[in-house]
Each structure stands twice: as C-alpha cells, then as structure tokens.
Nucleic acid binder design. Structure first.
Length: 806
RNA sequence: GCCGCGGUGGCGGAACUGGUAGACGCGCUGGACUUAAAAUCCAGUUGUAGAGAUACAGUGCGGGUUCGAUUCCCGCCCGCGGCACCA
C-alpha cells in the first residue's frame, strides 16, 4: 500500500514552490492554449462530476508541455449571477463575501486533484479590474449601434423578477429557477446578435475540429431560412400586408392571409374591420395565454376573420380573406403569412377547422395523392398561370424575380435567433456604463471613468419594477451628464451572467494589463484557444455569445483572429450511482474530497478517465475507483529489487503502449489509453512473478512512468524521483516509440473454413503466402474440416488470416 | 414532426481502413492464506449441450452485399440529446 496522502501533499507543495506551471511567455516556443470552461463557484462546492473535463485538459496540458510546447492552462471564476445573489438576500451576506468563500473552497478542491493550472493568471469576473473591460466592450458595441434600447415585450421571470434572453429559457421556463416565464413589455438593453447571424453560421464551416453535434445545435439555433417577402395590397386601402414565405412556388394556392394578433397592422386596420369587437375580444384572449399554451402543438388552431378586409394576391389579383390567428408568431418574419392549406400542415389544419378553401397547386406524379393531409414536398406547379409546369425549385427563382420586377416583393433571409436581451433588473452583475440625460439622451460613461463600480446597497431584493436595486441609491444614480454637464441618471440595469464569460479566455493572455483588454502581440502569439473543453449545455448559450463577441472584437481590431476556439470537446456528465443526475435533491452526490482521501487523487483521475468514452454520460461506481487504485498499487510494487533481464516481448509491448497512449490522448480516448497502461503493467507483473526478474531496464521503466504521469502525476513523480531523477518528470521529454520494436517477430494467423474460425497458427513475420497456406492446410483442426471436400478458393490476407472456401 | 447520437455479457465498456466479438475494469463463483474477517494471490465467468476436447447459437429486429458483417446498404423498433405552430 502506498501512502497517497503523504505523496500527493508532498508533490503538490513541491510543484507550487518550484513554480512548475508558471509560464514565461517565451515566444520562440510553439504554443498550446488549453482551456476549461471556468466554473461558477456555487456554495455546494465541487462534486466528482465537475472535474472530469478538468482532468482531461490537465492530461493534455501535461503531455503537451513534455512534448516541448509552451502551454497556457489557466483557471478563473465566473462569479456574477443569480445564485450568489439569492443566497445574499436570504442570509443577508454580501454576494462578494459568499463568493470569496466559495472560490476558496473550489480552489482547495481543485488543488487536491493536482491540476497544473498557472494560478498567477487567475481571473474573476466580479473583479472591477476585470469587469472594466466587460463594460468597455459593451460601450464599443453601443457605439457601433449593436446595443440598443428596446421596449418590446420580453421574457420575464416572475420569481427572479428580471428579463431573460431566449437562450435562458428551457421549455418556456426560467433556466435558473424553473418558473414559467411571462411576456412582459419592458425597457431593455438588447445586443444585435442577429447582425452576426450569418457569419456565426457560415464560419462554423471553418471549424473542422468542433464536434458536429455542437455545430448542428448552433445551426438549428441560428435557424437560417431563405425565402421571399411578398406584398399583399389591401383592397380599397393603401395599406400593405407583407408576408414571408419559403414556398413562394405555392402562392397560387394561397386562399387566405393570416396576421399575428400582436401585428401592429391589426390596430391600424381597425376602422375597416366590421367585427372589431369580436376581433378585439380574441386578441385579448390570446394575450392571457402563456407562451406554453400558445405554442402547444396539440391544441386546435383558433383565429378570427377580419370582416371587411381583403388582401390582393400580386400574382393573380385574387382577393382573399384576412385572419388573425395565434398560430402565427409576431416575432418571426413579418408577423404575417400567406396561407396555403394544400401545402402547409398548419394552414391545412386551420382551413379544415374553419371550412376554408383548399386549392392544390403542386403535384408529383410519382407519389400517391392523399387529400387528407397537406402535401408539403416539392413537385411540379399546376393551376399557377404562366408558372404552371415549372418545378418548385425553378418556380421559387422565377417567381421571386417576377415580384422584384413588379415591385411587390424580394428575396429575404430570416433567422430564428433573436437579438440578445442583455439587461437584468438585478443587483449582482456588471453595471451597464450608460447615462440617461434629458437633454442629450443616452450618453456613454467616458472610458477613462471605467469601471463603473457596482455600489453597495442596503437591500439586494429585486424591485420588480423594471429597475434594479441600484435605482434606490440616489447618490450613485444621480450624476452629471458627461456631455452637457447637466443633471442626469445612471442606467441601473446590470449585465447578465453570460457577459463576463464572453471574453474571459482573452484576459488570461494578459491578466494584469491596465492599458488594454489584451496586448495585441500576446493575442497574436497565444490565440486562438487550441482546445476548449466543457459541457454541451453551453452549445447555444455561452458558445454562441462568445463567438459573437469575439467576431465583434475582431471587427474593431482588438483581436487578430475571428474565431476564438479551434477545437471543442464536450464532456459527458457523471451521473449518481442510481443513474440520476447528481444533485442534493436525490442525495446521490459524491464528493471528490472523500474520494481523494480514501483512494487518492491519482486513482480518482484515472477512474474518471476510465469510466467510458469521454463525451458520454456514465454512472458513478465507487467499486470502479478501487479498481484503478489496485492498478496504481501494481505500478508502485514494480520496483527494482530484482535483477534486470530485458525481455523482447515486454519491451515491444512498452513501445506499443507508448504509441497507443500518445494517440489515444490526442483523440480523447482516455479510457482505452488507461486500459493499455493496465495491460502493460499486468504483463510486467506476471513476468516478474514467473521469472523473478525485471523485464525492463530502468530507462524503459522511466518511459512507462512518463506516459503514466499525465494521468497519475503524483505517483509518477514519486517513482520517478525514487528512480534517481533530480528534476521533475514534467520537465522531461515525452517518450517516442521505436517503429522496429513494435513489429512482432511472429504473426498469429487465424484459419477459417467457410468464414468460420477453425484454427490459429503462428508464422514468422516474413513468411510467404504459400508457406502460410501450406502450414494452414496441414493443421489438424483444419484437416478435419477439409476432409473429402474440394477447396474452391483460398483467401489470404497478409498478416491476418487464411480462409478456405469449400 | 425535424436534426444529431446511440442499442454489444450480470454491469461500465473494447474491437484498426469489413478479418479471432466481449480487450481492460467492476461484480459474481470456486480455491489458497487466516482462528476468523478484510486485504492479497490463483482459477473460472456470453448462452446452450458436454467431465473435457469441442460443437451450435450469439452484437436491438427483418432483409441484402461479401469468402467473411458489431463494422457497409435497405426497411423497421427502442433509448438519449437538441430544436420545434419559425411559415
């Protein structure tokens, strides 16, 4: 039994004292930037699931250093946000006090696991010297018109009493507290991420080392769709209904037009709507529905005709009725659609229910016609005037061109992604650095006055009025206008939790710079992040926001590259022993402190890597951890108390293992890398027991310790020093396998008859096809199956097998 | 509904570009050591039949291609994740 407590403590102290992981910014070396998604330091501390990704990046960082790279591997804290604030409200403690305590605990826990972070670059998003730059970036966006004030209805969480972005919702509920979100009109600061939608989408193709799944999630979230805007003039009126459609080819099948209930045009048309009182009543009903009720696909489609209003189809001058119906969303496209019930499921459903005309204009001869459902595929146009006979695809082109020629429409691209609601009516966030002046309007806080420090308040309680608790601090709110010097008021909303995390990876490059966000030469050397590891839940939140900010920073010349993360890997969750998500609620949380105390950090690290494929969820099993501990015991027991007799086979296995472990680490196949290390140590142990000899020389054993060291840094360092080395194993060079040692002297051939395995034979590696086949035919087990039969064909695969077809 | 990923022993999982299915680990069974237990070590562990050699079946289901399929193709079933009245 080795004393992991003593060994791990000893080396952790030694590594800190020798500044082993502090980088020197030696720009002559090749660089490697490996980054973890920095944690939100919650009061509960880490459970064993959190460090899984950190273990992987630590393994990579250690290996890369040994391969001669200058490695940047930093850590910091994403410390603004609601949980700390809610805790503060409940316990009357300043969120900063609670956060500092949590951070201390997190750091202690991370250090227990022996991570090789360069703590000299630690950052904290709540540090004024940090959020100065978060505010600075916001101001640059505001100057470029990318941050704007909006009064449109937004998602409002009645429990957190704040507005939320679309990305903060889960199935219509607040992502933080689970409360059903309402729509509420409110003044908000909004970031125009839609201006970047197209680049965010197309540039995904420049990221071959991102997992396809994550890219696909972003593509869906951005939701680009190409279509056509078409103007329907209203009969006997100058008003125009503009609709968006991706299927202009179906327009001859348009039998009515639908407006979203919130569409401004409805109010504008009031005078000409004969049944206004009914329409008004319907709109009122819709307003009282929650978003969830409205978007429930199973409910019947409701709506109301606008009596007296007719819209003119620009293609055939047909006058069609106009409806309001809540199956049309005001927030997408133009808030109005042309309804083609024959070729759209939703329109079909509505038309059936309201007995509206269904006119078929697309057919496909090769497919069965079913009049019970809408036909939504492409086909050939019929009953479509001059466009009849065209394919859907051709028609979309020609009809769009036609619309342009008669000045009644145009091609248009729409996105599902919405502008980012960026302000929060809460306390614990970065103050938005703007000032409202009656005379000058909205004015920026001068850059030399940044940061706008988050002031102390009496109460953190949210107000629910649309203002944050900061509004109550009058001597902070009231300021002189930086432009005219007159009386003005500060913006009191704060930024969302995602603000500080949009650019933190840049600050690690130059954490103490008080002139610039990051010095350009440092960005040029270190950027982009070579490897970024974190949870998939950030695919459509942090990872989209950060790419958006990064592209903006690139556009204004702050950074040198337009994508921040070259390679992205997502970590699979570690579930509780019961298979459920680890949570206090289920009582299934496993604490890493207990596990390192009982089994050691090295055993824990190896176990988490060995559990299964890195990106897959896996249930915790403490028995498995005792297995990896046993493996380390075997390593520890492999000492040089025996005389050395180099064994060709084991040396060959060592070199195969060096090859496999090196490749597997690069590919994130940590589980099979660990397995390879186990196979090797089992072979060595067996040999030692059988022959009472050491099959490897000290130098060869050193190589084994080196490939083990990223996984089990403490024990490897200990055994390395016991083996006579004065300097750290992590300052040594990663071993390189020898090709000639990997080649086997004998090859194992499998012999099949009719594809079934019947025998195995060993042949010298250089044996010829004829030799192998002759020997195979002679094998007793094969003879049995060939007797009295005619060999029709012999298949020979060099180095692998022989198959006789009889 | 759409998109993505997956389905292999009692369990986690392995299997290179089609070539010994079940590596490695856990668990379990038997044995050694011990007064006993733990720890450790040894043997076994996909199913069926057999004392065994061995034979047959077997990677969600049904087909196909191939000398040979967990791997490729077609059609299904199930699970997980994301998106969703987005026109």
């Amino acid at each position: 039994m080795y004393d992991h407590r003593q060994i791990e403590k000893k080396w952790q102290e030694q590594w800190v004292n020798s500044h082993l992981y502090q980088i020197q910014d030696d720009k002559s070396l090749p660089k490697y930037y490996v980054l973890d998604m920095f944690p939100y330091p919650s009061g509960e501390g880490l459970h064993v699931g959190h460090p899984k990704g950190y273990i992987a990046t630590d393994i990579i960082a250690r290996k890369k250093r040994m391969e001669g790279f200058q490695v940047l591997h930093p850590m910091g804290w994403d410390a603004f946000g609601l949980p700390a604030e809610n805790y503060a409200i409940k316990n009357k403690v300043h969120p900063k006090v609670a956060m500092d305590k949590n951070i201390k605990n997190f750091k202690r826990q991370l250090n227990l696991l022996g991570f090789s972070y360069d703590w000299s670059r630690e950052i904290n998003t709540t540090d004024p010297s940090y959020y100065r730059w978060t505010q600075w970036i916001f101001l640059q966006m505001w100057r470029k018109g990318l941050a704007y004030e909006s009064f449109a209805p937004i998602n409002w969480c009645p429990s957190c009493q704040t507005g939320l972005a679309n990305e903060d919702l889960e199935d219509g509920h607040c992502e933080r507290c689970g409360t059903l979100v309402e729509q509420r009109p409110m003044r908000q600061w909004v970031l125009k991420i839609t201006d970047y939608a197209d680049r965010l989408l197309t540039d995904l193709d420049k990221l071959p080392d991102w997992e396809e799944a994550i890219k696909e999630m972003q593509r869906n979230w951005i939701g680009r769709s190409e279509g056509t805007e078409i103007e329907f003039k209203i009969s006997n009126s100058e008003d125009i209904i503009t609709v968006f459609t991706t299927r202009v080819d179906t327009i001859f099948g348009c039998t009515y037009v639908v407006l979203a209930p919130e569409n401004e045009l409805v109010q504008k048309l009031k005078a000409s709507i004969k049944n206004w009182s009914e329409v008004e009543k319907y709109i009122e009903e819709v307003k009282n529905k929650t978003d969830l009720q409205r978007t429930d696909l199973n409910k019947e489609k409701t709506g109301m005709v606008l009596d007296g209003v007719l819209a003119i189809n620009p293609f055939n001058q047909e006058k069609v009725e106009v409806y309001v119906a809540d199956y049309v969303l005001n927030s997408y496209g133009t808030g109005a659609v042309m309804a083609v019930p024959a070729h759209d499921e939703r329109d079909f459903e509505f038309a059936e229910r309201h007995n509206l005309l269904i006119r078929r204009v697309i057919v496909d001869e090769s497919k069965r016609v079913d009049f019970e459902i809408a036909y939504t595929d492409d086909g050939e146009l019929i009953n479509s005037g001059d466009f009849s006979g065209l394919s859907s695809k051709e028609a979309r082109e020609k009809m769009s061109d036609y619309l342009v020629s008669i000045n009644k429409g145009r091609k248009k691209i729409n996105y599902k992604i919405k502008d980012w609601v960026y302000s929060r009516q809460r306390y614990w966030g970065e103050p938005i650095p703007l000032i409202h002046c009656d005379k000058c309007g909205v004015v920026a806080v001068p850059e030399e006055n940044l940061p706008v420090i988050l002031p102390e308040v009496e109460s953190y309680q949210p107000t629910g009025t649309g203002e944050s608790p900061l509004a109550a601090i009058t001597d902070w709110v009231n300021v002189d206008c930086p432009q005219c010097g007159g009386q003005a008021k500060r913006e009191t909303n704060t930024m969302p939790q995602w603000g500080g995390s949009c650019w933190y990876y840049l600050r690690y490059l130059d954490p103490k710079n008080d002139q610039d966000l990051v010095a350009s030469d440092k960005d040029k050397y270190w950027s982009p992040v070579d490897l970024y590891v974190g949870g998939a839940e950030h695919a459509t939140r942090h990872l989209i926001y950060a790419r958006f900010w990064h592209k903006f920073l690139f556009d204004i010349g702050v950074v040198n590259y337009d994508e921040p993360f070259t390679r992205l890997k997502h970590v699979g969750l570690i579930m509780g022993e019961d298979g459920r998500k680890m949570s206090k609620r289920w009582g299934n949380v496993i604490n890493p402190d207990d596990m390192t105390e009982r089994f050691g950090a090295d055993a824990l690290r190896i176990y988490e890597m060995f559990m299964g494929p890195f990106d897959q969820a896996a249930a915790w099993n403490t028995n498995g951890l005792s297995g990896t501990r046993k493996f380390l015991e075997k390593v520890n027991n492999t000492s040089f108390d025996l005389s050395i007799k180099e064994d060709r086979k084991i040396v060959s296995l060592l070199h195969k293992t060096i090859k496999k472990v090196s490749e597997d680490i690069n590919e994130f196949h940590f589980n099979t890398a660990v397995s390879a290390l186990m196979i090797l140590i089992n072979a060595i142990t067996e040999y030692r027991q059988a022959k009472q000899l050491s099959p490897l020389t000290r130098e060869q054993w050193d190589s084994f310790l080196q490939i083990l060291s990223p996984f089990a840094p403490h024990l490897s360092e200990e055994l390395w020093s016991q083996n006579g080395h004065e300097s750290s194993i992590f300052l040594s060079s990663w071993p390189i396998y020898e090709e000639k040692l990997i080649k086997d002297e004998v090859t194992n051939y499998i012999i099949q008859v009719n594809g079934k395995l019947r025998a195995q034979i060993e042949m010298p590696a250089e044996a010829s096809e004829d030799e192998v086949i002759t020997k195979a035919k002679a094998d007793v087990n094969v003879v049995k199956w060939l007797e009295g039969k005619e060999i029709k064909k012999s298949i020979y695969v060099s180095g692998r097998l022989v198959n006789f077809v009889v």
